[in-house]
Computed example of a mutant assay.
Amino acid sequence: MTDILEQLAERQSAGPLNQLGAQDRGEDRALERFLKFNPSKFTGEPNLEVAENWLERMTNIFSALDYIENREFNEKFLPPLIQEKREDEFIKLRQGTLSVAEYEGKFTKLSKYAPELVTNEQKRIRRFVQELNVEIQEGLAVVQISTFTEAFEKSQRVESTRMQVRDFHYKKGVFLVILLVRLVKVPPLPRWEEEWEE
């Protein structure tokens, strides 16, 4: 990623666009598109959080521009121990008590540390779906999914539907209890203090 930025910066300082060849003009357009995102400069700080936030911002920009070279950045700026820790977190990542949106956020962030596990769209989809809660996996079993975005959106729909059903059953159960109490007219419980006094 750093090499791409350096090459683009060198091209920009080479001179006006009309003096450059077709390839150079294309690279200058890429630089112009990149600069429209107003990217921040990474100063090489040892603070891991600063580095990760900068990387995430750059990744978003480069994804929009169809450039991805995260592995090079990770190897250069993140200590191997941190890289291995994040890779292990990705390998062990399960939805558990997370919402689908929270799980997707962690999945996307941590997958950058284990790109060999999600080398293409199908592997990324399969890994994402396999670690969803079983109830959501069941809802996706009959659905055709061809992109990661589809997997995420359909998982959210299944989750939303399941929550609506659960809320309906809960409200129905509360209503039935109230109805039964009114119908049966359960006598009030005796006060313990009165029994102890006798």
Rank of each mutant, 00 (worst) to 15 (best):
E193A: 01
V181L: 09
L179P: 01
R127Y: 15
L17M: 10
E6K: 10
V143L: 13
R71G: 06
V181C: 07
S111P: 09
M1V: 10
T161C: 09
V174W: 15
Q19L: 10
L132R: 02
R11T: 10
L55A: 10
K85C: 11
I61Y: 06
G96N: 07
L17V: 09
Q156H: 01
E153H: 06
K41Q: 02
E131H: 13
F168A: 10
Q23M: 10
R25H: 08
S40Q: 11
T43Y: 10
N60G: 13
N133M: 05
E84S: 02
R126S: 05
F175A: 08
V118L: 09
T119D: 02
R166S: 13
F168Y: 15
K36L: 13
K106H: 12
G173V: 08
S146V: 13
L189Q: 14
D3Y: 08
R25L: 08
W54F: 15
F175Q: 06
L20C: 02
L20Y: 02
V100N: 00
F37Q: 01
A22E: 12
R157K: 12
Q95F: 14
S146D: 13
N53M: 14
T108Y: 08
A51G: 06
E69M: 00
Q12R: 08
L179W: 12
E194R: 13
T119R: 06
L20T: 05
T108K: 10
T119L: 04
V118P: 00
Q12L: 09
V50F: 10
E84H: 07
F128Q: 09
R86T: 05
T119C: 08
Q137H: 04
M58S: 08
V158Q: 11
E102K: 14
N53A: 15
F37I: 09
N133K: 07
F34H: 06
E32G: 04
F107W: 11
F73E: 05
V129W: 03
N38H: 06
L180R: 04
A141Q: 10
K154L: 12
E52A: 07
F42S: 03
Q83I: 15
P79I: 12
A151D: 04
I178L: 04
E138N: 01
L132C: 08
H169Q: 14
M163G: 01
L98D: 12
L65H: 01
